[in-house]
Design a protein around this nucleic acid. Structure first.
Lengths: 226, 226
DNA sequence: GCTTTATCGAACCGGTCGGTTCGATTAAAT
DNA sequence: ATTTAATCGAACCGACCGGTTCGATAAAGC
């Protein structure tokens, strides 16, 4: 097994010139490698169930090195959550822009959202986070904000625009956007979270669920029903 | 601190007569006492985070005694989940019977459901269960069945009856009942689960949310819109 | 009274935990 | 070729884990 600093990215030496060796604990590739191993462990065993020794093994990194990159177990976990938090929910806002008809926008947004949050990987994250919310409430809240609340806010803004344009009759856009989000994954997400359903929903199931969600939503809030 | 078998329930002795002393590990009051302490620990720390020593302390029971009543940590946890599972969701079906108008039934059912599953205690249970679903999927599935799925099925049956009576235009009652359930807690439950909101919702918020849910539901599926 | 026995409580088991240390290794920099 | 230092890896720390054992205690049954 190779030792010494791995050379996968360039950096600057004290002399100011480009060099190929990283300072201790500053090789981003090694950092990712550790995070990857940690993710496997944390998602499988939860925060308490995961062991630092196992994380080292899974990451292919010595314990000494790991503790150069991260202060302790909590530090590692927090860094990992922060990374995944934004990786999962990047690019959602773009789906609500453009000048498609409202139904199409909702459908596109709903499909992306529903399929994303019902994925095995994301479901595992949600379980892991939920499991430690009691002892780390701020971490859970931040995860929620980056995920549910951000998409919620984006949708909320769209609904207000549509209302202002007279195409929607929404007394409470805040509530309506929350309702739409829940509708898209009705009957699926919760069953996934609690392990009643153990495989990703098929794309056509997502499509059907979102189509029904759009239909119900428009029936309730559309100005011209149909 | 008193020792010896506590005398809170009657039992039968080998002779067949009523006696006041329980066989080892068969005092239901002591059993409850253990379960109570275990609940506190498991809900606060999760399955892995909870320690058997702490559970003993919290329950006011010696470790030796605890292991007379339960085989091991998992056995205790499973017994506890089984007890709570049915304690939480008892009596929901009754709310859907009688001859009230559909809207009233939905409202009553929705309010009870929403306020129940957003309670601190129930939220903590959901977090704890979700946290170990990966390693104990059957336990999570059974929890889901007793909770979400049972209420879901009850509602489903009601919708089919209403459709048969011509008072509802539901193409897919299965989906519609899931949608209604999600609508009642839209924007609340998820925020509670992830610790974004840390207190029980006020009754009037529940009422407003359920009222909106009924409205949306009836707009989408009611035969006479209004 | 005496016997029975459920419970207590503390010591103990082997194992693993998170975290630390430090000499050996090895590759980059010069 | 030599120096430098990031990483390795194994041993080690004290603490605690889940689980077991067993003599002491005290209440119930006779």
């Amino acid at each position: 097994m190779p030792q010494g600093a791995s050379r996968t990215d360039s950096d600057t030496c004290p002399g100011g010139r480009v060099c190929r060796r990283h300072a201790a604990g500053e090789d981003p590739a090694k950092r990712d490698q550790i995070l990857q191993g940690a993710m496997k462990e944390f998602l499988e065993k939860g925060f308490d169930g995961a062991s630092m020794n196992e994380i080292c093994r899974a990451a292919g990194v010595s314990k000494g090195t790991l503790y150069v990159y991260f202060e302790d177990k909590l530090d590692l976990f927090v860094a990992l959550v922060a990374r995944e938090r934004q990786a999962i929910f990047a690019g959602f806002d773009a789906l609500l822009k453009g000048d498609l008809p409202l139904e199409d926008k909702l459908t596109r947004f709903g499909q992306r959202l529903a399929s994303t949050i019902c994925t095995d990987h994301v479901i595992q994250w949600q379980r892991t986070i939920a499991g430690i919310v009691d002892r780390m409430p701020e971490l859970g809240a931040r995860f929620y904000e980056a995920a549910a609340q951000r998409t919620h806010d984006d949708l909320n803004a769209l609904l207000r625009r549509e209302r202002a344009a007279g195409r929607l009759d929404v007394p409470d856009p805040e509530r309506a956007s929350a309702q739409f989000i829940e509708l898209t994954v009705a009957g699926i997400w919760r069953a996934r979270l609690f392990g009643k359903r153990r495989t990703d929903p098929e794309p056509d199931e997502i499509e059907a669920s979102v189509a029904s969600a759009v239909q119900v939503f428009m029936a309730a809030y559309g100005r011209t029903s149909g």
